[in-house]
Design a protein around this nucleic acid. Sequence first.
DNA 1: TCTGTTATTGATAATAAATCCTAATAAGGA
DNA 2: TCCTTATTAGGATTTATTATCAATAACAGA
Lengths: 132, 132
Amino acid sequence: MQERNTLQKRIVHEALIEMACHPTADDVVVKVQSKYPSISRATVYRILNKLADSGEALRIRINNGADHFDHMTFPHYHVHCNNCGRVADVKMPVESLVDLLKDTSGYKIFGYSLQFDGMCPECVKVEEERGA
Amino acid sequence: MQERNTLQKRIVHEALIEMACHPTADDVVVKVQSKYPSISRATVYRILNKLADSGEALRIRINNGADHFDHMTFPHYHVHCNNCGRVADVKMPVESLVDLLKDTSGYKIFGYSLQFDGMCPECVKVEEERGA
DNA sequence: TCTGTTATTGATAATAAATCCTAATAAGGA
DNA sequence: TCCTTATTAGGATTTATTATCAATAACAGA
């Protein structure tokens, strides 16, 4: 038996899809508890992590604050307002990244951070040796 | 009197420059305390934050762990190894981002996150009104 | 050089976010 | 239905970081 389809998983995933904004885990807890008061905070965190790991959701890390989550529909980027803390989608083609300062979306852009996730050559090697 | 040039600031900044890796705040605390045992953890955090705010250092947020810091020399990106947790520089031109999967650097790239920091139109407006 | 102001520090308490722990629960195969 | 075990609830705990505040020390001016 691999993975179980629980009420909690369905409700959390559904809540994330419904929330068009970019909620923090805690936002999701509040939302979900309005429908299902007995759900545990740890459960919501666990399910959100699983969704993020499987690629069904995106985790957005913000300086000086909690992680935000985003139901993945299409590849896109995010702007974080340093003032109010809100996170919004950016529908900007990657190619124009270099023209950041000319952005006319109404956002004042101070900077950006790009981070790759993967596995370094050393770890790839170890993994391969273990597999072989 | 604006900003004071203290021994602590000099030592922390110097340590960050010396550390070619991408240390966490705690790594820097350990390093700095080897030279200057009485320095406080809070002081190191405070100074690192100031460096990051002023653009002299870069804060790199990693899933599931402490922030890493990087002495800024030139614009570049980072790879985080999901396996060992190490962070390394990526000297990849932005233009080739779309060709991620063809990357031949030896890293297995699973994904990336790009995040802008700035101020949203609503906040820009409020700021302007307050200033005027 | 001495002195006063105040930015900064050290030490520790406090906070925030997320995870761990474990008994209880319930999904779903037989 | 029963059994196995993945999953949950709920609180305790951990980890990273910040707040607090008295003590210290930069540095401008006398």
